[in-house]
Design a binder for these strands. Structure first.
Ligand SMILES: [Zn+2]
Ligand SMILES: [Zn+2]
Ligand SMILES: [Zn+2]
Ligand SMILES: [Zn+2]
Lengths: 498, 498
DNA sequence: GAAACAGGTCACCAGGTCAG
DNA sequence: CTGACCTGGTGACCTGTTTC
């Protein structure tokens, strides 16, 4: 993936401590985080601009930058990147490109007033309060981290810092993908409801699909704020621009070297945590859809990914837009797998949303809209509510990308996920901060990724055939029949399972 | 359903090793269980609070948490688990929570004298020795597992880690589930008379519960002592509050890293193992089931599971009560592979069972009695003699699976399969070899959208149809009917399956 | 037929190393 | 100190099994 280090701009080695960074910045952050004493005060009033060449010149500013881009010890991600993560990265990338293109175009007019965001982007909030090059503090940031950015006075409330907002982002958001891109459409033709034919991917017509509910699992989606220059306002309606520090980094607070004088970065940190928590906890359950379920989700995910990738391939500057909105959902644990989608003509039904009640602890509903401008023909919209797939069922092999859709089990509950976290307290003692705080929030953040998609021929074939399948299986059924019962008893084993 | 990982709080991927957990905790437990040496001592005195963000910070505490929430390799099995298993686990959990709450409440009064347990609980023994937030060791826990929770001094017998007496746990107690919670009642839908009355679940009055209509197969129920905060007194009359470690985890015992210093959690581990083993081996045989057959059971099962899950979701401290009774069973070691059952009306064909071979060394005869009070009509008895099908299963080590088996022949043999496993060799360890294997799928990475889709024709079809599928249960029901019961006993394997 | 779970695979990341 | 490189571990995804 072509990611660049968010701190210095060098090609990124990976996603480290919550941000795409190079090896150097990764190591630097890792070393510095627990050894603030080694960081001397900035001689330039904390205003150093960090880039590849001068990154070693001012440790204070480098660390500050790290924190600004969302690095956090608690924001670490382990293991393979989920397909959702990849999708988001791709979308983000597209978005950025589009934004850049738009900006370039608009600059002629007025530099100060950013062009109104596309309708779809509107929901994201203001695009840019932060100066170019600087990112707003991430939700993932812990209190300490935020403190480092400029707050010294913050008293950290108590042990339970984190939960609040940070997590909320990630975890709960569901995404609606609205694909408008004509390109995609063109590729496929409207699908028939019955058959998915090759057109499968054509989002539009896809009635069934259209309703796809696939929602990314909570942790999989990079924080929206990170994805774009500004963080998503919807998530923090009550305090725009207000970030709440997490308790996590308190130890860092004592070190004033990292604070810069720029007031623009100062954050409020009243105890708003609870507020955030509440807002974040909304679930969206709306998905209604039931019928389709996993299958739909699977297809959807894959579909999206493909669409995104293609769109990227075709038009460098994709017009895909992602909007994130928070919906309240019903707390009902029950399933919410349903997918709802509406096409252009129809528009998204609100009813879907109706469910939302704020009650649910956390859910955010995110909408992603992809547009392909290159083709403006028919633009259709596909709105998809995605629910986190969770179950792996999919089978994909390992391909890098392939999003295998997994079917999730449609468990209904998808939405409820995140709630927990509160407990975090760190344990211990040690110092580390890890613990506590914010854990939640961080999910991954991210950036763009390009991945290659894989393929699965058989799948393709099946799709092409419109299904066909195979059925090989009777054997197993036969066996089943033969077996009346099986009982295993194990002497010692207490556990029995039914 | 929207379960969260009981270890870290992340959305659960499924029910793994006895508890709802995320993929990460599942893998962690799987890896750690057989490789305790990789776990270093907690730097925080064993008091780390595990959550999503910091779960990787302390392996010792993470593993301890896994054990506390009931994870056990001994209780695991290869394929899907029956709903009974889950039901019991859930009930157990509820009970624990309730007990913990009660205990917390009562501690004010007198710590030493636990409040009298609810009638239904009475049999279980004292409710709460464990502090809130901590779970009592579960029945599934093997000695080793228990040891890990708090015992350091235990010397582990030998190298052979697993095999020992693990089995003991499981099996023996049967459980009557008495559901009182009104909540549950409400949740469930009325059942069909045939099947079970709807009221079935209404516990309350549950006199019968009173007679549970459906009683889980012996092996499936977690040991009562583990089910609740306290272990089941019946099993350990001589030493209350004394938990005995299962032999299974002895290898773990040697590792003291997992123990935390909190004395409250300390367990006795005199060599009482044999005692436990004995007590654990009791089987309950009486079941009589009645009219309803499997179908009813199925429905019931499903119903219960749903009710339990819902109730959990709603009220953390569920009111569901579970009573456990110990039945003496015939210890007969003989094996009888065959299963004999007699049902009232129909009876199960033995022929089906014939497959089972007695080969397995151990067989226990278990009687399961299920009563459905709701329906009192004819009560039938089904006596099943279970024979351990394969031994393999039992013990399997870790990987029963043996992939090698692969389908091949019919499964009848399946049962026998596992035995082997031991060999699991990992494949490769070596290096890599890996594989290539998967190549097939991949095709090239490509581009076209169509390709990306993969398999799962059915899925596609479903989507295409826009529908949902579903409900095909009948087929399954039919099978169920055919199958009277399934019990597997594995010598070593504690886990039984139904 | 499809869901769900144990186990395997391997893309990825935190950390540790150690020349520079 | 820095950061390329290595190592241990992590967990998303997949395969095969078992249940529904
Ligand atoms: Zn860098
Ligand atoms: Zn500076
Ligand atoms: Zn977990
Ligand atoms: Zn610890």
């Amino acid at each position: 993936m072509n990611q660049t280090c968010k701190v210095c701009g060098e090609p990124a080695a990976g996603f480290h401590f919550g941000a795409f960074t190079c090896e150097g910045c990764k190591s630097f952050f890792g070393r510095s985080y627990n050894n603030l004493s080694s960081i001397s005060e900035c001689k330039n009033n904390g205003e150093c601009v960090i880039n590849k060449k001068n990154r070693t010149a001012c440790k204070a500013c480098r660390l500050r930058k790290c924190l600004l881009v969302g690095m956090s010890k608690s924001g670490s991600r382990y293991g393979r990147r989920s397909n959702w993560f990849k999708i988001h990265c791709l979308l983000q990338e597209q978005q950025q490109q589009a934004a850049a293109a738009a900006a370039a175009h608009n600059n002629h007019n007025s530099q100060k007033t950013p062009p109104p965001p596309p309708a779809t982007l509107a929901m994201l909030g203001h695009p840019g309060v932060y100066p170019p090059g600087l990112y707003p503090p991430r939700p993932n940031c812990t209190k300490e981290e935020l403190m480092l950015l400029g707050l010294d006075d913050y008293k950290h409330p108590a042990a339970s810092p984190s939960v609040s907002s940070p997590d909320s982002h990630n975890s709960d958001s569901s995404i609606d993908v609205n694909v408008r891109s004509n390109t995609l459409l063109r590729l496929g033709k409207p699908m028939d409801a019955n058959s998915m034919s090759k057109d499968l991917f054509l989002p539009l017509p896809f009635p069934g699909l259209s309703s796809l509910p696939v929602m990314p699992p909570p942790g999989f989606i990079p924080p929206s704020h990170l994805l774009f220059p500004g963080y998503h306002p919807a998530l923090y309606p009550h305090h725009q621009g207000l970030l709440k520090p997490a308790a996590e980094h308190q130890h860092l607070l004592s070190n004033s070297h990292l604070a810069n004088n720029n007031s623009r970065y100062a954050l409020n940190h009243n105890n708003n945590n609870h507020i955030n928590s509440i807002s974040n906890n909304n679930n969206l359950n709306n998905n209604h859809i039931q019928n389709n379920t996993k299958a739909a989700e699977e297809l959807t995910k894959r579909f999206y990914l493909d669409a995104v990738l293609k769109s990227q391939q075709r038009s460098p500057v994709a017009t895909t837009t992602v909007t994130t909105t928070t919906y309240t959902t019903t707390p009902t644990p029950m399933h919410s797998d349903s997918i709802s989608s509406t096409k252009k003509d129809h528009h998204v039904d609100d009813d879907q949303r109706q469910d939302d009640h704020p009650t649910s602890p956390h859910d955010h509903h995110t909408r992603i809209e992809t547009e392909d401008e290159s083709v403006d023909g028919e633009s259709e919209e596909l709105v998809v509510a995605m629910t986190p797939p969770r179950s792996p069922r999919t089978n994909m092999q390992d391909d890098p990308i392939d999003l295998s859709m997994k079917t999730g089990s449609s468990h209904s509950s998808k939405s409820s996920i995140a709630s927990i976290d509160d407990n975090r307290h760190l344990s211990g003692g040690e110092s580390d901060a890890h613990s506590e705080d914010n854990d939640d929030d961080d999910e991954t953040t991210t950036t763009t990724i390009t991945t290659t998609i894989q393929k699965r021929p058989q799948f393709v074939a099946a799709v092409a055939n419109n299904i066909s399948e195979d059925e090989e299986e009777t054997e197993y059924e036969r066996d089943m029949k033969r077996m009346k019962m099986q009982v295993t008893t194990t002497p010692l084993d207490l556990t029995t399972r039914v």
